[in-house]
Amino acid sequence: MANDTNATAGVYKETLIAGLWRENPVFRLLLGMCPTLAVTAAVKPALTMGLSVIFVLFCSNIVVCLMRRLLKPHLRILMFTLTIATFVTIADLFLKAFAPVMSETLGPYVPLIIVNCIIICRAEACASKNGLAVSIIDALGMGVGFTLVLCVLAGVRELMSAGTIFEIPVFSLARTGGWFVPWAAMSMPVGAFITLGLMLGLVNVVSKKTA
């Protein structure tokens, strides 16, 4: 009996860790690239985006998991999309009501969570096959893993392009007598692509060393 509980706890822990590093959605599975590149010009919108994705992933995994025995195979994808679109609409309304500035900055990228491959991929690969507990933990692991990547990428880009992190000045700007000349390119699409590319390279190096 005790052995059994231990084994389940092990599975939970494994699932959680997998989302954070081993199967990290952005670094390893290359999923959800569009928001990763689009909203990471600054940390604040990136964090908002990450939290919205966690919310949608969490809710859709629960719903998909609960109805997994009732699903007809050929209507499966349609049901997933319907579920995800519903929760994304709710997240969008929430942002519009309680964080209007963020909602405006993110613009169409909030509704675009619907087609974020992470969510539909987790619904298909995990929630429709596993129990409730595993699905919830998987959603949290994947969601937090995604949010962390978003924040790290956004941190680098915001620091380079404005000398701030979370809108708090870190470097003293040349304009006000400091030494740092903001690197505007980092907040443009170029910065997004190249930073993410280099970061993926770095992850490859690190994981090869630790393997």
């Binding site: 109805m67 009732l70 699903l71 007809k72 209507l75 349609l78 049901m79 319907l82 579920t83 519903t86 609409t89 709710i90």
Partner: peptide, 15 residues
């Protein structure tokens, strides 16, 4: 399609 119909109804209500 009963699941689809019931779900659409519930989701619509939720929104």
């Amino acid at each position: 399609s009963w699941l689809l119909i019931v779900a659409s109804f519930l989701f619509g209500l939720l929104i």
